[in-house]
Amino acid sequence: MVESFSPRIVAFCCDKSGYVAADMVGKLRLSLPESLDIVRVPCAGRIDALHLLQALEKGADGVLIFACHEENCQSLTGNIRAKARMGYLHGIMERIGLEKERLDLCNLATNNGAKFAETVLQKFDELKKLGPSPVE
């Protein structure tokens, strides 16, 4: 069972960085897990705590946020807010016994295709070890 378990990852990608980097993964012909779902948002600041929780609730084994590097956000604080919301949710997740690792954030830039792929694959392996989400 655990052998064939392929964790489902929802990646929220800022249109200014993460989404372009995800495109670049394709251009570099690096592979990504099939179970990765990409959600495109105009800015990481658009991502509501509610969306992140919903993703977990609807069966994602892990949620990743791809935001711009700090001090490189067109909306100045979008990436910082996303990070703060993640921190807030980590608190809740701890209380309800959900592993913090299931929600993570990665700062990158448009040309960080390799980093995007690496982050996703790393998270994929980590979640594999962690096992399926207990709320599924």
Binding site: Q54, I96, E136
Partner: peptide
Amino acid sequence: SSALKMARKK
């Protein structure tokens, strides 16, 4: 609501 549902599901 989402947090409670998840916790109870778990």
